[in-house]
Design a protein around this nucleic acid. Structure first.
Lengths: 138, 138
DNA sequence: ACAAATTGGTTACCTAGGTAACTATACGCT
DNA sequence: AGCGTATAGTTACCTAGGTAACCAATTTGT
């Protein structure tokens, strides 16, 4: 299949575009949301932990975290290891999480409900395998 | 499945990262390659045609096409409709296409060969459906 | 025929990914 | 103890996506 990866890219672009539209209601972008999500579920984290979890390079995380700090959604507190900074949600960050969670859940649920469980499982499995394989390249 | 879209995004990021590494051998980025690919197969095109084909906004195409012009891979020729510019590959662009095509083909073939035809079909179909559904949102 | 609407393309500016190179701190080993 | 190495984070700069607003040329409608 020639166009397989073409369709993959098309879909993820369309997906992030639309979810950004939805998240605009609470003033978030998708990448900001993903960090807020991580902090809520793991309570607190360093930049490197977030970077490893999402497999996104450190400078990208630095930038987005700084933006979230400007927005008053997170705080950085110095650690005993003076190199690292523990990041955690502020009260405002918690509130935004709740609103954003509802938006993202209904958006994703809408999409997923149109696909059979069977197809969803096969697709998820395939994508996971492709991701492992692609990271092995070279 | 909670993490379904998470894995989608992870995969496409890993994919473009690796294909960018591969294409670096011929001095191209993936988005540049996709335009070179289009021009080779459709011979000549306007910005709007490319924009519609890839569902990418016009300013993004403008920028990448300008970069390709600087690299000497494409030329813009004025059309009878004085608003539009026909874009086509130069001789150098044709050569780069051949080299890049080989790189991309073997890269994609490597990945796809690890997946059964059955799973590939289900996945492609699912992604296509999701793409249609996501564009209907709102 | 001409005013209004549409279309092709650009500019300015935003988020979001990447690499390369750097600083400062911590760790390990001899 | 001290030197070398590894790690956390940042800075600078690249590509790549997006929106909003605009210009100029074309098309449409009355």
């Amino acid at each position: 299949m020639d166009s397989f990866f073409h369709h993959q890219l098309q879909f993820t672009r369309a997906f992030t575009k639309k979810i950004n539209e939805q998240l605009a209601k609470v003033g978030l972008y998708h990448s900001q949301w993903s960090i807020v999500f991580y902090l809520k579920h793991f309570n607190s984290a360093t930049l490197v932990e977030i970077s490893n979890y999402y497999d996104v390079e450190k400078p990208t995380i630095t930038r987005t975290v700084n933006r979230l700090e400007e927005m008053g959604l997170i705080e950085k507190i110095p650690s005993t290891d003076k190199r690292e900074k523990k990041i955690h949600l502020t009260e405002k960050g918690m509130q935004v999480y709740d609103d954003a969670k509802r938006i993202v859940d209904t958006f994703e649920q809408n999409l997923i409900s149109e696909i059979s469980d069977e197809d969803l499982m096969v697709t998820l499995h395939t994508i996971q395998k492709l991701k492992e394989d692609v990271q092995k390249v070279r």
